[in-house]
Amino acid sequence: MHVLLIEDDALVASGIQAGLEAHDFVVDLAMSLADGRHAMKVSSCDAVVLDLGLPDGDGMTLVREWRESNLDTPILVLTARDALHDRVAGLQGGADDYLLKPFELDELVARLHALIRRAAGRAHPRITHGPLNFDPLTREITVSGRLVMLQRRETTLLEAFLQSPTALLTTDQLKDRMYGLSDDVESNALNVHIFHLRRKLGKGIIETVRGLGYRLGSPEAVDVSQASSRPKE
């Protein structure tokens, strides 16, 4: 999943970035309002983690701007100011969640997952697709109850498909989900990852729509025999 982190304090930002990356998030870092605004324009992300005190203004201006332009990406506000009116103003201004610094990394991750899940319109944290079962929080993928080992990028790619099971996803959209703005992406990287997914989960798991992009295959296409023999504990 792709998260835009807007935080001006380099030390805090590097910590959150490392923490989120450890949980398989793809993180873009912006250190000012202007950077954040720009990052939002050039790439799409699943959620925004926003610090309020930014050098060129209050983070809430971004929230209002985005909400006014009907951008509904979930926004989690981070702030060190705990005055009640700050919190209320944050949520009323269009933010979806609020976390007071300092926080538990696990809580941030759980909240981000919940926000993204809710934005996708799912009530249950686990995503199922026929015999395939994916837990976004633990990153665990099982097929008929058996664990399937996927690499980090592969998981992120699969997650992108599972989150929009009927949508046609373009190459650019998929790359946005998988890579940050600063990542160097090789031209055939996406093809390689799709190849691996098909090998591990069945040929039909991802359908190619020629000239347009890809979409998630039918639930029946999941190859049950490919799953590892180790049953899920």
């Binding site: 030390l11 910590g15 923490g19 610094k101």
Partner: peptide, 29 residues
């Protein structure tokens, strides 16, 4: 006074957040 408290909270919590987050990352990596 309120601004001072708020600012002080911010100044103290920001490095604390950095410390806490990095320590949590360190324990996982």
């Amino acid at each position: 006074e309120q601004r001072f408290t708020n600012d002080a909270a911010h100044e103290l919590r920001t490095p604390l957040t950095a410390i806490k987050t990095h320590l949590q990352v360190a324990s996982r990596q």
